[in-house]
Write a protein that binds this DNA or RNA. Structure first.
Lengths: 187, 187
DNA sequence: GGTCCGGGTCAACGTTCGTTGACATAGACT
DNA sequence: AGTCTATGTCAACGAACGTTGACCCGGACC
């Protein structure tokens, strides 16, 4: 059991949490280690001690494991809805903040873009590809991924009011049919 | 006719061009006025003279007028393809660089996100909304916009190799059916 | 050819950044 | 109680940033 007043683990956790908020809001370059340390109620020098520097903290802040399910198990008639539901779960769950950091800074940071590509290649694309070629219909993975990334960009990055205001149920109702059609050719 | 060796207009143009490349690649905060000036072959102080400062140059770099056509004229059976084609025209044409700057920095710059929302509200959404309610089918604008923004994010910001490599014709073939289905309910 | 001015140069400024290293202290152990 | 180590504090550093103001100069005009 760690002590309460001096706790390295708690400090690390507080720094990563504060970093995710700041990096997700203003990106890598425009965020200062002083801001993050102040938010975490901690001295800036501790970022060097525990993460080696600003980059190390950023690396820790964008660690994300999507743990996507196996969509081959899902009833083909509800595939679109299942994919959208899983997508929303990830963005609104524990993985949401690192994902926001990643997508927000992908445009201004080559390393973030690289991580994003790696996430697609190793996690997203394989999960979607598993449902290929159903009833003679071949879905285009690019289109499926585009819909999801577009939704994430509009809702979590650009924050278009009309799309931010949508409830989870409304998103499911509007986006699932399009994905269902693309994935299986049906409605 | 402006002189050749000392030409304020040419200097302004060169600065804006260089700024669009840099801002589009590394965003606002991580880009320095010294880099831009060097790229343009010009003294950094001229940015202050002609644009009032870094922000002024950024403002000039993101000025974009999409001049979207009236989609109500288009044959409903080819609406999806027309929308995608127009979209590609804009991104690969004159408006492409300012659009890239805007989308790339939307995640890290509140002002860029604001401009993006304004562009949607005043240009994109009205153009798409014009084709509402066809043959009893009501399209969801959010889905249409999500597909297009997702495609732009993947191709021009994150630069996923599989999507960057696609030719214009391939993109049209793969994305048009999805939009056609969403817009008119047909194939 | 002398004057004038738009256009361009240059060195320096005050700030703020990430980072460093010397120092303080709380709590566990002997 | 005294010691040791993990943890936290603090002042300061050098570098790089955006910006400024004083200074040049080419060429149009009289």
């Amino acid at each position: 059991m760690p002590s309460s007043r001096r706790d390295a683990d708690a400090t690390r956790t507080a720094l990563v949490a504060a970093a995710r908020v700041r990096f997700g809001r203003t990106g890598y370059a425009a965020t200062t280690v002083r801001e993050i340390a102040t938010d975490a109620g901690v001295d800036p020098a501790l970022i060097m001690r525990y993460f080696g520097g600003k980059r190390g903290l950023y690396d820790a802040a964008v660690q994300v494991d999507l743990r996507l399910p196996d969509f081959t198990d899902v009833d083909p008639d509800h595939l679109g809805r299942a994919v959208v539901a899983t997508f929303l779960d990830r963005w609104d769950g524990r993985a949401g903040e690192p994902l926001r950091v990643l997508l927000a800074s992908a445009g201004t940071d080559a390393d973030a873009a690289h991580r994003m590509r790696a996430t697609f290649a190793h996690q997203v694309t394989p999960a979607i590809s598993a449902v290929q070629a159903h009833r003679g219909h071949t879905p285009h993975i690019e289109v499926v991924v585009a819909v999801l990334i577009g939704l994430a960009t509009l809702r979590y990055v650009v924050r278009v009011p009309e799309i931010v205001q949508l409830t989870r149920a409304e998103i499911l109702d509007r986006f699932s049919p399009a994905l269902q059609h693309e994935l299986t050719g049906g409605v």
